[in-house]
Nucleic acid binder design. Structure first.
Length: 405
RNA sequence: GGGGGAAUUCCAGAGUGGCCAAAUGGGCCAGACUGUAAAUCUGGUGGCUCUGCCUUCGUAGGUUCGAAUCCUACUUCCCCCA
């Protein structure tokens, strides 16, 4: 096995990384593998607790891929056992626990998605249930003997919960220990994860030393902020872009991203050289955002589709022309009187509004329009003459095309 | 096992007998402004046959002219002591 020069590897691998602990050992490890021809074992663990892999998850995953492309060994750990515990990291309350069946279903789904970033054909994929499932109580006690309660409580998330008098369950305390044990079992040289994983990463080093294994280094990726530009990208926060989303959906979301997040997104989600990124950012923000969107979308969809999505966004949204696929709604003839129906009833019927109160509100605020030229509907009891092809809008985004059924 | 505290509209969180469909913030929706970005500003945010009416404040009863607010029981959650 031959590897590119260390400096070259470092330049790519260090990009967008928040911290490497210990910093110096990364270069040393790379040196050694270059000399011996033995690839580094790069560990990344995921708990199959949810389903949608979003761009936030791809940050460490992309890093794994870069290691792979340099010839190193990716080790993906499916945390089918740790998922049963629930990672307390960064949480201010206990996670809901899952059943084994849910976990397995999620795991398969997860792998399909992970495969879009990591080359699974060259990766080792293991489940930590393979070893945790075999441990007996004595083994567990031995492991527990490595950590003191005081150490555990230095973690910010636990300390915070302790201070707020919120519950900390014993099984949650075992989580970092389990994660660290994974590193021993797979003989990890490098572990990737977010900054909140620091404690587990360090614990892994302790355990590895205790077992006379080389100690892993931790590479921590920054938290990717979500579309709101403030909070971390997360499914429950509704501020994420999923990697399985259709190109146009991704495009729309990208264009909503606050400008000041672009540098971070470029750095963490694309491989565009940073000087080029700086040049783009110096230009018009809209152009830069388009490029960002195309670059990222292009890594999950064929390049042509990314471009098409960008063009469609420009036409439909940038130039305010008619959206492409407008849902059709056929108004039953028996709802009409002389071919007409009151505006609020129509909104309710088409499900554009959830209730007639909701419909009245929308109309009162001047948010309901008719036709290509978007004539404002003035009142909730304005009769609407329904003709085939008539467009009915609520706000800028919701629209249906009517027909008489 | 014993003691204490809490459950409010999407979320957080006010409200302790009438002025409460319920403050405030967040989210969301609509409007203005824009690059239909973000930020900002304005308005809205239970339902209806809508200048009025109806149903909501853990569940079920009760007190009262009147209850989210008081009483009783129950359910759930949290904390402390052992």
């Amino acid at each position: 096995m031959s590897f590119p020069p260390v400096a070259e590897q470092l330049a790519v691998l260090r990009r967008g990384i928040e911290a490497v602990v210990p910093e110096a050992e990364l270069a040393q490890k790379l040196e050694k593998s270059l000399k011996t021809g033995v690839p580094l074992r790069v560990k990344y663990g995921i708990d199959p607790t949810g389903i949608d892999v979003h761009l936030g998850h791809t940050v460490p995953m992309r890093k794994i891929r870069q290691f792979q492309d340099f010839g190193h060994q990716a080790v993906i750990i499916i945390g089918n056992y740790t998922a049963l515990v629930g990672d307390p990291s960064g949480r201010d309350q206990t996670r809901a626990r899952l059943t084994q069946e849910q976990v397995e279903t999620n795991a398969i789904d997860y792998l399909n998605q992970v495969g879009k970033v990591v080359d699974l054909s060259r990766a080792e994929v293991v489940r930590n249930g393979d070893w945790f499932g075999k441990m007996n109580f004595l083994d567990i006690l031995n492991l527990c003997g490595k950590v003191t309660v005081a150490q555990l409580l230095t973690r910010e998330d636990f300390a915070k919960r302790q201070a707020e008098e919120k519950a900390i369950y014993l099984h949650e305390c075992l989580y970092p220990l389990m994660q660290a044990w994974d590193s021993v079992m797979v003989r990890a040289d490098v572990e990737l994860g977010g900054t909140e994983q620091l404690y587990s990463f360090m614990l892994a080093r302790d355990l590895q030393r205790a077992h006379d294994l080389p100690q892993q280094i931790g590479m921590m990726t920054p938290i990717l902020v979500g579309l709101d530009g403030i909070r971390r990208m997360g499914k429950s926060l509704g501020n994420y872009i999923g990697i399985s989303e259709p190109p146009f959906e991704m495009m729309k979301k990208f264009m909503q991203l606050p400008d000041q997040c672009m540098r971070m997104y470029f750095e963490l989600l694309t491989s565009l050289p940073m000087p080029e990124v700086e040049a783009l950012l110096a230009g018009h923000p809209k152009v830069a955002k388009m490029e960002l969107a195309k670059a990222v979308i292009g890594s999950y969809h064929p390049a042509g589709e990314a471009t098409a999505a960008a063009e469609r966004w420009q036409a439909e949204i940038g130039e305010r022309s008619r959206p492409q696929d407008i849902a059709k709604f056929s108004v039953p003839a028996d709802k009409l009187t002389d071919g007409q129906i009151n505006a609020d009833k129509l909104l309710l019927l088409t499900k554009l509004c959830a209730s007639s109160s909701d419909a009245r509100r929308a109309i009162a605020q001047g948010g309901v329009y008719l036709g290509e030229d978007k004539t404002v509907v003035p009142s909730h009891d304005t009769p609407v003459r329904v003709i085939n092809g008539l467009l009915l809008w609520v706000g800028k985004k919701r629209v249906v095309q009517l027909e008489v059924g």
